[in-house]
Design a protein around this nucleic acid. Structure first.
Lengths: 141, 141
DNA sequence: TTATTATTAGGAATACTTCCTAATTAATAA
DNA sequence: TTATTAATTAGGAAGTATTCCTAATAATAA
């Protein structure tokens, strides 16, 4: 797991201001692996800073995504965020919305092959598997 | 490429009514590999049936997706549709929005491995690579 | 401490999609 | 063919996540 100081410093070095709101958001993203939504992050940060606005949460998440410090995936029209930025597969539960990460070494290779075939210049990948998680699947068999 | 009759019959056999609107939408999806948006499909179908509504297009696409006759992916908040329903990688141009399909045999295997590791019951997959297509990439180097 | 200017809070605006309802029409039976 | 009936449609309103806007605030550098 990355340290909060690392991320904060990498922002500061690029000239971004370090605000309590930004620290709280980064802190939460680093300690959870829940892939929270912007609204969820907003609720969490509000416990400490009741005045924080949802638009600030969105703006901070935009910044972190641009700096590749967090990854964003869309699940049913809603963005979900994760500080795990290495290439991996997101397993998404279509019932409860839980997201689990699975590492898979062959993804890089697949990416290289596809880039060669298509002549696209690849900048980002998104590998998703959708279904039911271990808890939910019994309800659907 | 699938035949229009196949798809229409598979709908009819399940008790769905075959309307000119539905035929026009299915026809267009089968003959293009452009991954059009709902709005684009609407514009195309309007040339033949000026009264067709956008909500009918959405409803038909819902139906086709439920019956697994088309695949849907979200690109920058907008749904894009494709009659290519076999497992494949979608290469998405972040500049012009072009989507190209690339087949890759190892996807099934990856899916099986991830399902085993995570204990998820997998129903659907979505493999995306984002970047710039062959036409657009020169602008970004 | 003061000056500068990025950032914030709060709400309005946006954009895609879904929902709602009366009118229409595809499918079936007579 | 015509009548019946229920699925489907057109059109627009409503919903929802996100982005945009602006005056007020506060992080940073001098």
């Amino acid at each position: 797991m990355q340290q909060i100081e690392e991320l904060v410093n990498s922002l500061r070095e690029e000239g971004f201001r370090i605000t309590p709101q930004r620290i709280a958001i980064v802190e939460y993203l680093l300690k959870t692996n829940d892939h929270p939504s912007a609204e969820h992050i907003h609720k969490i940060v509000q416990k400490k800073y009741p005045m924080v606005s949802l638009s600030t949460v969105y703006k901070t998440l935009d910044l972190l995504r641009e700096k590749k410090l967090v990854n964003e995936i869309k699940v049913e029209g809603e963005a979900r965020f994760d500080a795990h930025t290495d290439e991996h597969i997101n397993l998404i539960c279509m019932n409860c919305g839980k997201i689990e990460d699975v590492d898979e070494d062959s993804l890089r290779e697949i990416q290289t092959k596809a880039a060669r075939k298509s002549k696209y210049m690849i900048l980002k990948s998104n590998f998703e598997l959708l279904g039911y998680c271990n808890n939910c699947k019994s309800k659907f068999i």
